[in-house]
């Protein structure tokens, strides 16, 4: 899911990445809406609120919204920076760092919410800021490694693009185009996953509250482990096989050399 980069990714890679991250985004957004009365996976509303706060002259409220936007921006910036500075050798590691940071954010929100949260305004705003940073990380990661094919928190753009692609599919010419069909499938899957994540989160949040973030972290950790196994296990298995083959060949050469030396010794003594 995370190993391949840009154009070397297959449709299946992007589909898996899109569905999984959209599920996470949907869950986080509904959880933050229920717990903090604030959206955390989308920024369009925050820009509108920022403009409104500026117009109303509420400077500190405006700064809070601006800080949230800056954190989302920083998350995406950091993700992409890690990816473009990675080499082919450490691609998995650098692609995983944003996800590890994201898991760290979720665990922090989960622990703080469960044990220390007194529902004050400042605490709420800080936790929303942490979640916005994590969503920025995720959006930056998915968009960057998929060559901008997958954007899981960008539902306005996604709905527009899906509508455009579905209208294209009304013509036979485009239905024959595998790229258009795949892109439509990908977008529909992301949208459904986002919705499913939101519904699931909405169903469990009243009984699990902040523990929903542990659940999300566990799921992400599971994906990271799966990807790690897929990346490194074949490498070590192949290395072992390769070493064995080398060893056998070396032994063969050594025994051949020994035999030749023996033969030569016998001939010389004769």
């Amino acid at each position: 899911m995370l190993r391949r980069f840009s154009n070397s990714r297959t449709f299946q890679d992007n589909l898996r990445l899109g569905v999984f991250t959209a599920l996470i985004a949907g869950m986080v957004n509904v959880a933050s809406l229920v717990l903090f009365y604030s959206f955390t996976s989308n920024l369009t509303g925050h820009f509108a609120i920022l403009a409104q706060e500026i117009a109303d002259g509420k400077w500190f409220q405006m700064l809070v919204v601006l800080f949230w936007i800056v954190l989302f921006f920083s998350g995406s910036f950091l993700s992409n920076n890690l990816i473009i500075n990675s080499t082919r050798k450490n691609a998995f590691v650098s692609h995983s760092i944003p996800m590890v940071l994201e898991i760290g954010c979720f665990i922090f929100v989960g622990i703080y919410g469960q044990f220390f949260y007194a529902e004050t305004l400042t605490q709420t705003e800080i936790l929303v800021a942490v979640l916005l940073f994590s969503m920025g990380l995720q959006n930056g990661l998915t968009a960057s490694i998929s060559n901008f094919q997958v954007k899981t928190t960008h539902l306005t753009g996604l709905t527009t693009d899906l509508a455009i692609h579905l209208s294209l599919l009304t013509k036979k010419k485009y239905r024959m185009n595998a790229q258009v069909v795949e892109k439509t499938k990908l977008m529909a899957a992301i949208m459904s996953a986002y919705l499913a994540g939101g519904v699931f989160s909405g169903l469990i949040i009243q009984s699990v509250h902040f523990q929903v973030f542990y659940f999300i972290s566990a799921a992400m950790l599971g994906v990271l482990t799966y990807d790690f196994v897929k990346t490194y296990v074949p490498f070590y298995v192949n290395k072992k096989k390769h070493d064995m083959i080398l060893k056998t060949r070396l032994e063969k050469i050594q025994s051949t050399l020994k035999n030749t030396a023996k033969k030569n010794g016998v001939l010389e003594s004769k």
Binding site: F60, L63, V64, L66, V70, S74, A129
Partner: peptide, 21 residues
Amino acid sequence: LVVITLSSFGYYVFSHSDYPE
């Protein structure tokens, strides 16, 4: 520099954000 700027900005914002309360 970015981390320090962001942290200072965050500290300034959140130390004044309890105004409505």
